[in-house]
Amino acid sequence: MLTASAWATPPTRTELIESLVSGVDRYNPSNVGILEDYLYHQIRSEEYDCLANLAILKLYQFNPDLYNPDVVINILIKALTALPFPDFNLCISLLDERPPNANPDEPDPLPTLLPILSSLHNLLQSCRFPAFWTLYRSDKAESLRDNYTVECVGFEDAVRNVVVHAVKAAFQRIGGERLGSYLNLSGDDLTAYVAKLGWSVNDATGVVTVPPNPDNQIESTVVQENIQLPQLVKVIAHAQVATVQV
């Protein structure tokens, strides 16, 4: 994502959702169903609309009765892979402290999953990609994987996109093994993934070449000052007035 407009207004957003996100109707609790359906649509079709999801959390904030932990967890999973942008924290900001769970028959999964999601977010944010995968594949994250991310189509590839974003900016060439540990891929899977990205591999060394892009081309420059006429207007105008006075 190079521009913020696609983030603020994704092209996949429908008119109905747009009217909820931008209008006063976003505060109407009876619209929460529409927005929740839209979230599950995003989960199924690899779309993402941060502002619409924030609108759900806003409704939960004002109407604690509406609170649905599954929806919150899915929103956080989507926001996780929006890194390096701060969506995850923006969502967390809206989660006011919940009152103690009133219904012991239906335990709220969020309190146990939130620390894991936060740790995953932290690892991904710190570009500690191998550690991310280790935690994600661990027993600790089992319930997250089995109950949630498995439903989120393309979740692992979305994480890999975060990795690719970081690698593309920092590397011109990167060792195949290192890249594999970031992407949690090896062998043919890695080869296929790199080929899909359009990156080339040196067969002898396994070193992957990242195509040039604005972030991995560096150049030393000397910025020279550049004075524009408007900056001098005050001086010139004043000089003229002074001349007239004399």
Partner: peptide
Amino acid sequence: DFVIDENMVNIAESTVG
């Protein structure tokens, strides 16, 4: 700014006159 070429870190600095 910098970029990593395999394992070599190349650095470039912009200065202001």
